[in-house]
Design a protein around this nucleic acid. Structure first.
Length: 423
RNA sequence: GCGGUAUUGGUGAAGUGGUUAACACAUCGGUUUGUGGUACCGACACGCGUGGGUUCGAUUCCCACAUACCGCCCCA
């Protein structure tokens, strides 16, 4: 085994790739019903794009980014997430201009890169599908985005989703809460885990997320964001919940839910699922939220935005084979006997394919029995057998592989005859 | 970046410091003439992740590295 793929990368082989195509086709279909259009942006950007958007204290920027200098001494980075590049494109292409209908709604899919220790469903090159909507601060849009995510996952057959929502409030509320958390945790500083001591300095909100047992005890009595919302933030959140109720979305408010990236405010949400594929532990399959300051941060006009992203590898682990509609039918397997038939097969195959049949043949000069075995193995609907007799009589033997019935038809009209047989 | 477990053929795997590395599945071929199943027969590891070391001798012991998986960090 001389060469091997880089750590944390995957080859997606045929069979597996069919599942990806299916998932992507469902995304395309569902999102377009909500009038989200696909956007494709580069998989690398200026380092600063990610640095500005994610916040330079975030782990993504500080230790997980694949950054490099190109030959022109430009500092670039492989994208660690999708939103920053889309926002950059939004600003650079002036999509905030008056000629564009707001909200400007897009979705994307593609590879993302983070330098970290691989684990099941977590890789260095991974794939996300995400959506973004710019130019409206409306809670109705929040609900549209959330319900579209639900719709997408439901369509893929993912059941038992738990929808968790929270709000980070506006900047004022967030600031007040930040201060309250520091006030609360500081007296416990010595008891906190080492990680949380650091968090207290860098990002106290993250302490709420700690998995350390002792931290959890301290967190249990920590102040709740919901008590620090100013009136407008509170009203917005209440209204959002009302809208979700009216849509009969089954959600829970999780006031300890936070976000790793700095740019979020107001509504944030995660869809969780418990599944044997993850040892029946609860994992997040989709996460998103509102980021009203991000466009401005990247040099655009003050523009509200909201979006979500989901990891395709994780999603794949949740999908059962029966949830996937994979179409890989073989209509015709061409069986040839002898050199004349072999030569004629090139043209016959071409005609079959041009007529819309999925068709294939053996290329290893194998015996008839082996060719039929392969046809059977590939679950061909029909075999078309050509030998010296057929060439001489200008006929072809068409066999229905399900019933075993075989008929002789004119070789000249093979495709028409096949269509007739198919009904 | 830290800790743990693992690494044998196309696949699932057994196994031992020392002549031919089980078994099963898959694949291919055969059981005479141009048709899919079953049965039977046969073939199928540049040799046991890579590189060193210990040893008379290592796939089996030791070390380093690589990769995979699990946990932490973080997150999709």
């Amino acid at each position: 085994m001389r060469y091997q793929k880089p750590k944390g990368t995957m080859d997606i082989l045929p069979g597996e790739s069919a599942k990806w195509q299916y998932v992507e086709s469902v995304a395309q279909r569902i999102f377009s019903h909500y009038r989200f259009s696909e956007i494709r942006t580069p998989i690398f950007e200026s380092y600063e794009v990610f640095e500005r958007s994610s916040g330079d204290t975030s782990d993504i920027v500080s230790k997980e980014m694949y950054d490099f200098k190109d030959k022109g001494d430009r500092r670039l980075a492989l994208r660690p997430e999708g939103t920053a590049g889309v926002v950059r494109a939004y600003v650079e292409n002036k999509l905030y201009g008056p000629e564009h209908i707001k909200p400007y709604k897009v979705w994307y899919k593609g590879p993302m890169f983070r330098y970290e220790r691989p684990q099941s469903g977590r890789q260095r090159q991974f794939h996300q599908i995400g959506v973004e909507a710019f130019g409206s601060d409306s809670p109705e849009l929040d609900v549209e985005v959330i319900s579209m995510g639900l719709n997408f996952l439901n369509e893929l057959g993912i059941k038992n989703l738990k929808v968790a929502i929270n709000t980070l409030g506006d900047p004022e509320s967030r600031e007040n809460y930040h201060r309250a958390l520091v006030d609360y945790f500081t007296p416990f500083k010595d008891q906190l885990s080492d990680d949380s001591k650091v968090r207290l300095e860098k990002n106290p909100l993250r302490i709420l997320d700690s998995k350390d047992t002792n931290d959890k005890k301290i967190v249990a009595d920590a102040p709740s964001i919901l008590d620090y919302l100013n009136d407008s933030s509170r009203e917005r959140f209440e209204y959002l919940k009302q809208l979700l109720d009216e849509l009969e979305v089954n959600y829970e408010v999780d006031s300890t839910m936070v976000r790793g990236l700095d740019y979020y405010n107001h509504t944030i949400f995660e869809f969780m699922v418990t599944d044997p594929a993850f040892n029946n532990k609860e994992i997040t399959v989709l996460a998103g939220g509102r980021y009203n300051g991000l466009v401005e941060e990247l040099g655009g006009p003050q523009t509200p935005g909201i979006g979500f992203g989901l990891g395709v590898e994780r999603l794949m682990l949740l999908l059962k084979d029966e949830d996937l509609v994979i179409n890989n039918d073989l209509d015709v397997y061409l069986v040839t006997i002898g050199q004349k038939a072999e030569q004629a097969s090139v043209k016959i195959l071409s005609q079959l394919r041009n007529a819309g049949f999925a068709a294939d043949k053996d290329y290893l000069q194998r015996k008839i029995k082996a060719q039929f075995k392969t046809a059977d193995h590939l679950q061909a609907k029909y075999t078309v057998t050509i030998g010296d007799d057929e060439i001489e009589n200008n006929t072809a033997s068409v066999k229905n592989m399900t019933t075993g019935d075989q008929v002789s038809v004119s070789l000249n009209n093979l495709t028409d005859e096949l269509k007739k047989i198919e009904g």
